Simulated scan of single mutants.
Amino acid sequence: METVLEVFLNIIIFLIGASIFSFLNVVIYRVPRKLSFVSGRSMCPQCGKNLKAIDMIPILNWIFLKGKCRFCKGKISIRYPLVELLGGIAAIASAYIYGYTLQTVLIFAFFGILTVTAFVDYDTMEIPNEFVVAALIIGVFAFFAFSDISFLSRLAGGVCVSLPMLLITFLIPGAFGGGDIKLMAACGLFLGWQLTLLSFFLAVLGGGAYGGWLLITKKKGRKEHFAFGPFLCAGMAAAVFIGTPIINWYAGFLI
């Protein structure tokens, strides 16, 4: 009976997470276009038809409609159900690690901010200040909700990566975007210095591999830039969920 209840709760948690990230899809689409995401009905971006509730069932609606708009049959990007799936998985992972607590809510909210930031930066090469402020607010709440990371560690997390990024940018103009620097400062308060350093290390690995692939395939030249924010966000997301085991594993080699 207990197992059945756990499965049911996980399904509910998954659906809540997928539904919230379905809304974040709206944010990802509207913010770069300077449209309000708190007013106005959801609509097909191609034909402009208002969507009904049945058209907005996370994941399943995209599958049933075979990735097409019910009205104009225009193609709907697979990004939409993938973001919703990501939200469901993030919700379950957060609840599994932190239980039914305020910590779970903050972790999930932080992951949501990272997701929106990553996709908007990928699309526009810009990180809106609103997302940085949202990350900062979550970071301030983390001071009170998480006791395993000290106050000083969080303060150090705010500068241990962002300050070197700023100095490097002064020396090499364009090395990092201002949004990247501000994002790492805000998120560092949430992560603490250890996870912040780890997330930046993972971002450099991922970004370096991606940059190398772009050069090899000649999709970009040596002096052309690509969005680094998605790699920072991916590194921080990984640090949140598996960062501590990675750090402990690495520390084992130093003992």
Rank of each mutant, 00 (worst) to 15 (best):
C69M: 02
W62E: 05
V31K: 14
M184Q: 05
I113G: 07
F190D: 06
M125A: 10
I59H: 07
G207K: 02
F200P: 01
F190P: 11
F170V: 00
L191A: 04
T3V: 12
W213H: 08
G157C: 04
A145N: 11
A145C: 13
F144P: 12
L35F: 12
S22G: 13
I63N: 10
S94M: 08
N129E: 13
G211M: 10
I113P: 05
I247G: 08
A95F: 15
F14Q: 08
L5T: 06
E130K: 15
L189M: 09
Y250D: 01
G88C: 05
V133P: 10
C44S: 10
L195Y: 03
K66S: 15
R30I: 12
A186G: 07
F231H: 07
N248F: 05
W62G: 01
W213N: 07
V161Y: 00
T104M: 12
C44Q: 09
F143D: 13
L155M: 14
G88W: 10
Q103D: 15
F23D: 03
C160I: 10
R79G: 11
T196F: 02
C69Q: 04
L167S: 03
G40W: 11
N61A: 15
F64S: 14
K219M: 01
I12E: 14
K218P: 08
K34S: 15
L198R: 02
T217Y: 07
G188C: 00
L198P: 04
Q46W: 13
A134M: 13
A185E: 00
N129D: 15
L35I: 13
F253S: 02
I12F: 15
V132G: 06
